[in-house]
Design a protein around this nucleic acid. Structure first.
Lengths: 138, 138
DNA sequence: TATTGTTATACTCTATAACTATA
DNA sequence: TATAGTTATAGAGTATAACAATA
């Protein structure tokens, strides 16, 4: 593919980037003995914070029943802890266990620097990438 | 989250970007009556080109048996065509049908400009994004 | 004998619908 | 009555192992 000339081509590049990244996930996840969906859940639970099941369903854009199964498996492996909220006992809140935090750290580490291609960016390009992606993420 | 100060933080932004994009896929795919995996396959089959099943397994980083099922479902919906290669009849090659091409075009269109946030980038930032992602993709 | 793709099997992911507990 | 999460069920995604056809 030639260098894009029309400004519209810029829109296609994130698509390419997404699918390329997506292809890396199964192998990376398998190394951590996780599924891609479980990786996504771990990433959504920020260290030291408690999040509700419903929040995960919202962020994953999936049905709540799905979250139940995902959390079942993560909990059975000791990566997250599930307990009823004190304010509203219908709500179940989740927290990373120490093992879950380690898994999440490895995950971000692996995904952050998967191939060496990042080294090919200059410091200025890295800075620019952060700025642009920040704006794309709102 | 504050703006990143250490250079290492730059690595986290693509991770954040990936999972944010991943969360958009199920809804977008459902609108096209496709699964995320089927979207990935369609994206890998470039218009007018024939690709082998094995190539897809390689690009998806998944087992070949998996590709059989994915292609079965895409073929049964008339989005791809599967035939034996003439040079080596062990190899099955795939091509988009006209319907498959339309689906792929809609897919890229939807993923390329999902939210209006792209408008917030200056022309120079867009250009920079293309250049940086091009290098990240090799 | 080696390679490409398929089939058989088992588990995970996912949505829909019905259900339980709490509000 | 409404909401948060679970359970039951079914279809799709995924890996492993055994297999068929071709080379």
């Amino acid at each position: 593919m030639k260098g894009p000339s029309r400004s519209g081509d810029a829109w296609h590049m994130p698509v390419q980037f997404f699918f390329t990244q997506r292809a890396h996930i199964p192998t990376m996840a398998a190394d951590l003995e996780l599924s891609p969906a479980q990786c996504h859940v771990l990433h959504l639970i920020e260290p030291g914070k408690a999040v509700a099941m419903g929040y995960l369903a919202e962020q994953l854009a999936c049905d709540a029943s799905n979250v139940t199964g995902l959390v079942d498996r993560l909990e059975s492996r000791g990566l997250v802890r599930r307990r009823a909220s004190e304010r509203d006992r219908r709500i179940k809140v989740l927290q990373l266990t120490p093992a879950g935090l380690r898994a999440r750290d490895m995950l971000v580490e692996r995904m952050s620097a998967p191939p060496e291609i990042f080294d090919r960016l200059s410091p200025r390009e890295r800075q620019m990438l952060v700025r642009i992606l920040s704006r794309l993420l709102g």
